[in-house]
């Protein structure tokens, strides 16, 4: 799939933002007043920024409200509902915490649940696609949700939770790559099944339907840069998981090391998210001779 920079940046940041909202909702840290103000400002900037940016790539953003209508069948519609509900509930919770110094526990827990559900629905948009076998696996939602929670814990300054969740996220990341690498072949998609021309013998794409490119090739058949995937995986693992865990576990780690840990984590997750898209092969590529 085409790794659009805007999608990579904003799924990474909004995942982090909703992860932070989960921890603020359950009262870790149990902040009020100015402390709460800054925490919620950061969380909302990340979460809302990501959602707002995702409407820019729409062909008709002025019709975006229609996307709330199909929640019965569409994960994208459900994501919209979950995100708006989470932001509204957490908004009320944040307002009370910042201006009245009271934390309405029930709202916080509901808001945390909705924030988690938002990340889950986002993950399901990718997971549901049978046409992209690498994404169509159980580990995709687990990978994205664990990553959001680990990043949220890191942003919330919760050392123990961060360490545990970060190691869990690291293992799920490795698992997602491991399983994902085999998914396409396991699903049994070949040029023979795509064209039905398998039985007579060997088959090869002889000529594409057009001399130039097209929407399908630009959007779904991304081939450039996959050769660097092993290096990028090492970078994603190092910066995204290993460095942040090491930094926060250093004795006497303060805001400076914490900030460095967050920056390193974001950089690593950007690499991971780039791979999430760039390595995901859409089965339509078979018609154009991808994978032989």
């Amino acid at each position: 799939m085409h790794p659009a920079p805007s999608v990579i940046v904003f799924t990474t940041l909004s995942g982090l933002g909703f992860g932070l909202l989960v921890f603020l909702g359950i009262g870790q840290p149990a902040v009020t007043g100015w402390g709460a103000f800054w925490f919620f400002l950061i969380a909302y900037a990340l979460a809302v920024g990501g959602l707002a940016a995702s409407t820019f790539h729409l062909g008709h953003p002025e019709r975006a409200l229609l996307a709330f209508t199909q929640w019965r069948t569409s994960w994208l519609s459900r994501e919209g509902w979950a995100a708006v509900a989470a932001l509204v509930v957490m908004g009320v919770y944040a307002f009370a915490a910042v201006f009245f110094g009271t934390r309405i526990m029930v709202l916080g827990w509901i808001g945390a649940g909705l924030s988690l559900a938002t990340v889950g629905t986002t993950a399901m948009i990718y997971t549901q696609l049978k046409s992209v076998p690498r994404w169509n696996q159980v580990l995709t939602p687990l990978h994205l949700v664990s990553l959001s929670l680990a990043g949220g814990a890191l942003m919330a300054g919760q050392i123990t939770e961060t360490a545990v969740l970060m190691i869990l996220a690291l293992m799920l990341q490795l698992g997602h790559w491991q399983v994902g690498d085999k998914r396409f072949a396991e699903a049994g998609h070949t040029i023979a099944s795509a064209t039905g021309l398998g039985r007579p013998g060997r088959i090869r794409a002889f000529e594409p339907p057009h001399t130039g490119s097209n929407y399908l090739l630009k959007e779904m058949v991304h081939v450039v840069g996959r050769k660097h995937s092993l290096k990028l995986r090492a970078i994603a693992l190092g910066l995204g998981y290993v460095v942040p865990i090491t930094l926060i576990l250093l004795p006497g780690a303060g805001h400076l090391l914490g900030g460095l840990a967050v920056l390193s984590h974001v950089a690593g997750i950007l690499a991971s998210r780039w791979l999430f898209f760039a390595e995901a092969e859409h089965v339509v590529g078979l018609y154009y001779g991808a994978r032989g």
């Binding site: 021309l197 007579p200 013998g201 088959i203 090869r204 154009y288």
Partner: peptide
């Protein structure tokens, strides 16, 4: 769109 494929039995 019309693709073309070569089959070598």
């Amino acid at each position: 769109r019309v693709h073309s494929y070569e089959i070598t039995p």
